[in-house]
Amino acid sequence: MEALRIEGLSKNFGALQVLENVSFSVEKAECRVVIIGPNGAGKTTLFNLISGELSPTAGKITLFSKDVTNMPNYRRVRLGLGRTFQIPDLFFNLTLFENVRLAVMADKRARFALYRPVGAFGELREGVKRLLDYVGLWEKREDQVSSLSHGEVRRLEIILGMASSPGLLLLDEPTAGLSSSEAEQLATQLRSLLGEIAVIIIEHDMKVAFALADRITVLNQGRILVEGTPADIKADPRVRAVYLGVEG
């Protein structure tokens, strides 16, 4: 079964055409698709269209066999979509625990409870512990997000995206702002973390991209330039041309 199918997706903002006629699909059991491309290629816009933050100008999006083209973002999460943001979009005045708890609670009936204290719901605490343990942040659960290092913030951002146990996870530049050793560390963690979930990753760091990807899609100026295995992409002269002058 396909996790995601995009057909003929286009997006313009007035006269500015950001995406043009993009089509691709991601299998459910498939591990990782990485999207690369120079700045302005339309990668984050593509994510915003898939997750529902933006509506397409044309085209169709199918998520787990359901047409979600005009569905608001919160409903797509219910179908099994998760995502992270390039610029971490966390609950900055709250503790780590509270951040993750909100994420965990999103699909639980508990969230409607008006009467019992939130601390009484053991399932929430268990869910939070499990996620924080994945990234080794359980000890810091009472700390405010504002006191975290950048690497820790990125890890928190990832588990927020995973909290709803999505079938398809969109990771938008998960290693942005990290030093190259930190990025490698995160990449290793990701490989074990992600397991069987289908993932689409936007990545700037070529080392991470090639290390994580089963398949790479190259976006340039709003269009798909080429798709293929990491080996294919490395060898493709068009890709090199597009990236000429950009550190790879």
């Binding site: 919160y74 709250l94 019992r116």
Partner: peptide, 28 residues
């Protein structure tokens, strides 16, 4: 009771970052 309930924490989430709440799946 309301303030300490899960519903109350959702409200705080909305106040803090409504955009993320929707991205997490809440119909705010």
């Amino acid at each position: 009771r309301i303030v300490r309930s899960p519903f109350g924490s959702v409200l705080v989430g909305i106040k803090t970052n409504e955009h993320r709440m929707r991205a997490l799946g809440y119909n705010t």
